[in-house]
Design a protein around this nucleic acid. Structure first.
Lengths: 204, 204
DNA sequence: GGTATACGTGCAAGTTATTGCATATGGATC
DNA sequence: GATCCATATGCAATAACTTGCACGTATACC
């Protein structure tokens, strides 16, 4: 008779921020966004639409939940800020513990979650009846990537005109931006190649 | 007194494969993989490591569950195949309904789930103490992408030496492959740029 | 007055994906 | 004989993420 069943612990329940395995980097992305400035959840969600968020998308619900978790873990502190004409906000900042955890994290093994693009799967289904639709979709992609590249270039000219002169950390940020630019340029080139190929099929 | 509470239906519960909103394309990726050959879950998981899976990763658990769901929806049929020296396998194939659903799906709006790369977040945390670690990580990335490019090129030479001569559908597959190749080439170039920049920082 | 938008936080319920494990056959290696 | 690997399927638990909504303040526009 087994009165006390063995209670199986979650693999994640007691993972250690300093020695354990990190499940996913949203928490680190948020902490990283807070390195220079304290921010509220709302502000973070917006900055995720322009800065780090160019490489790491997160909805505001995800951000609010993560902020709550991180402040419970003492990696962030929070304070309420009264505002006039707007609702009050809760501003979060990195604690010393948080900064240490972030620096430690950098040395851990990286994870890559590769992009998933419906369009590539669709291309496996190419036939005479949907060529023109594929062309339309590709043109849409082309337009989107163009706009993104404009944005990147604006940021680059404004803040990273002379990357070698920047402090080290900003040089790292520049390299990430450069990755986005190069990736966009490549995608644009591929769109054009693909459009050319599809046009020749469509003409037949 | 409310004897019969209003039972709220899931938004997804009764979505229609032909008119509704598709949640995610794993099911379509699997169906696509089955266009030419019937396969078992195990074989699919393996083919996902070489063909479509180059652009759409899925674990075997995901695949088995999705196969079950799709065969319940009559989009796939299944049959057990006896084997000697190995366990029996369950082979799945596209039904007519499945083929139709797949063709319809191509005309729906595409979704892109952009890549999430820890390394880019890490670069935001670049400092004198971790430059050499970043270099090590980047060199690892470089090595991986090289190997992937070799694989892509092998496939290209073997099956897509003369893309214009291929049947239409294979031309689509070729374009997806080309996307992978271009993306790899770009990533490789970025790695080299970044490594150069980091080396100059490290030397200071 | 009504509606829309920006600001601001958050719950509830669902879907999607990962991790760890269970089970089983047969061949190869130590 | 024991251990490992490839084949083959699958459950259970949890984590990660999405969707829809609720609540509330203030400004602007029709």
């Amino acid at each position: 008779m087994q009165a006390f069943a063995y209670k199986k612990e979650s693999v994640y329940a007691n993972y250690d921020l300093f020695t354990g395995i990190e499940p996913m980097a949203l928490s680190q992305a948020i902490m990283t966004a807070l390195i220079e400035d304290d921010m509220s959840g709302y502000e973070l969600a917006q900055s995720f639409d322009s800065s780090l968020g160019l490489f790491w998308r997160a909805s505001h619900q995800q951000i609010y939940q993560e902020l709550k978790k991180l402040s419970e873990q003492e990696l962030l502190n929070k304070r309420e800020v009264s505002q006039t004409g707007k609702p009050n906000k809760i501003v979060y900042g990195l604690t010393l513990l948080g900064r240490e955890a972030l620096q430690e994290w950098v040395f851990k093994e990286s994870k890559v979650q590769e992009a998933k693009d419906d369009l590539l799967v669709k291309l496996y289904n190419l036939d005479a009846g949907n060529v023109s639709h594929m062309i339309t979709e590709l043109e849409g992609r082309r337009e989107n990537i163009m706009q993104r590249l404009y944005l990147y270039e604006r940021i680059r000219r404004r803040h990273y005109a002379d990357p070698d002169a920047l402090p080290i950390r900003r040089q790292g940020v520049y390299l990430a931006l450069l990755g986005g630019i190069r990736n966009g340029e490549q995608y644009l080139g591929w769109c054009d190649e693909a459009l050319k190929q599809l046009a020749s099929i469509d003409a037949e």
